[in-house]
Amino acid sequence: MTVGADILPRRSAWSALTANIPWLLVPALAFIVFVFGWPLLYLLRMSFNEHPGPSVYVEAWSLRNYLYILTDPGMLEEIAKTVYISLVTAIVTVVAAFFFAQFVWLREGRSRLMLLAVALGPMLISEVSVIIGWRIFFPSNGLLSYALMSAGLSERKINLLGTELAAVVGLSYISVSYCFFSILSVLNGIDRGLLTASGDLGASPARTFFTVLLPLAKGGIAAAFTQAFVFTMGIYATTNALGPDSLWTMPYEIQLQMLTRRNWPMASALSVVLIAIIAVAALAVQWLRHRKGRRRV
C-alpha cells in the first residue's frame, strides 16, 4: 500500500508536467513565427509583385519574376554556379573538418585543448577580416607567392587572387569551425574500443575507417555538409572579393537587385528560389543519410 501511495503522486506530478509542456513552448513558437515566419511570408508575397520602373514595386499577383529566373540563361547560369561553388566548398570543408576532428578526437590532455582553441579561431574572426587576410595571402606579391619562391618551389610569382580556388578557400575557412564541432560532437559519442576491436579482428586501418568509423559518424558528416552548403549559398562578399569577376552567384545578384536596381520583387523571388534550393539539398542529404543508415556495421 505504501509503494502504491508513493507512485500515485509521482504519476500525477508527471502528468501535470507533460500537460503543461505545450503551453511552455507557446512563447518560443510565437517568437520563432514572429521573427522568422512573418518575414518569410512577406518575402514570398513580395516575390509576386512587379517592378514597373521608377517605383520599388507595384502590388500584383504575377509569376513573371519566377518565369524569368527559371528561363533566362543568365539566371540559370548564376544558379548553376552558386550550387557548384557551394557543393565544392561543402565537400572540401567536410573533408578537412572530419580529418581534423578525428585527429583532435584521438588526442588527450593539454594538446587536445590547444587544438580546440585553434579550431575556435575562424569563428572569432569577421568575414571582412577573413577577406582582407586572404587578399594579402593570394596575390602575386602576397605571402604565398613569396613563400613558394623563397622555398625554391616556384621560379616566378603566382597570383591566385581572383580564382575559384581562392573563393573556395575563403568560403571553407568561414565554415570549417562549425563543421569541425558538428563532427567532433558525434565522434565524442563513439567508443574508441570499437576501432581497437576492429584492428584486433584483422581489419586494416583503411577498412576500419570505411566500415566502422565513417558509418558511425555519418550523422555529424551530414550535419556538417548541410552547414557548409547553407553558409556558402548565403555568402556573397567572400565570393565576390576573392573569386573571379565571372563568378556571379545568387546572393550577389540578390543584393544587386535589392540595393542597386531597387527591384524588390525580383530580389524576393531570387531569395525564395535560393531558400527552396537549400531546403531541397538539406532534405536530399537527410534522405541519403537514412538510406545509407540501413546498413549495419
Rank of each mutant, 00 (worst) to 15 (best):
A223R: 06
G121S: 15
A217T: 12
L201Q: 04
T18F: 12
L63I: 15
I183A: 01
L17C: 09
A279C: 09
L256V: 12
N188M: 14
G142F: 03
A267R: 07
S154N: 09
S12V: 12
P9V: 08
A282H: 13
A117V: 13
A101G: 03
A167S: 02
A223M: 12
A223W: 04
E164N: 01
A224M: 08
D200H: 06
L63H: 04
G193A: 12
S47V: 08
I235M: 09
R262D: 06
V3F: 13
A101W: 01
P139H: 03
M266V: 04
F100G: 08
F103Y: 13
Q227H: 07
I21W: 07
G37L: 12
L148Q: 05
L113D: 11
F34S: 07
L171Y: 00
I254G: 02
R45W: 11
V169C: 02
N49E: 12
L43W: 03
T82A: 00
V35T: 07
F225S: 02
L242C: 03
I131P: 01
S111D: 12
A147P: 04
L256E: 15
M149V: 11
L201M: 14
P139M: 09
W264Y: 07
V297M: 13
D6Y: 10
T71F: 08
P54R: 12
S185R: 10
V56E: 10
W287H: 11
G133C: 07
T89Y: 00
G199H: 14
A224G: 03
S47D: 11
F210T: 14
G234C: 08
P54G: 09
F138Y: 07
G220C: 05
G219N: 11
Y42I: 11
G293H: 08
W38L: 15
E108C: 01
L242S: 00
T163W: 03
W105I: 05
A96W: 11
P265F: 03
V230L: 08
R207M: 11
K292L: 15
M233Q: 00
I69F: 03
S175F: 06
N263S: 03
L87M: 07
L161H: 00
P22G: 02
F231N: 10
L40M: 12
T232M: 01
R289P: 04
L283P: 03
S126Y: 09
L17K: 09
M75P: 02
R262Y: 07
V33C: 10
S154D: 10
L274G: 02
T89S: 01
M46G: 01
A241W: 04
V94E: 08
S177I: 11
Y173V: 14
S111V: 14
R64G: 09
L165I: 13
R262W: 08
I69P: 00
I136L: 15
I132P: 00
N65W: 05
V212K: 04
E77H: 06
V285L: 05
F138V: 08
L213P: 00
V35H: 04
N20D: 14
A5R: 15
N240I: 14
R110P: 01
V95I: 15
Y42D: 14
K218I: 15
L288F: 04
F180M: 09
P54I: 15
A151V: 11
Y146R: 15
G142C: 01
V95H: 01
G170K: 06
S246W: 14
A279E: 13
A241D: 10
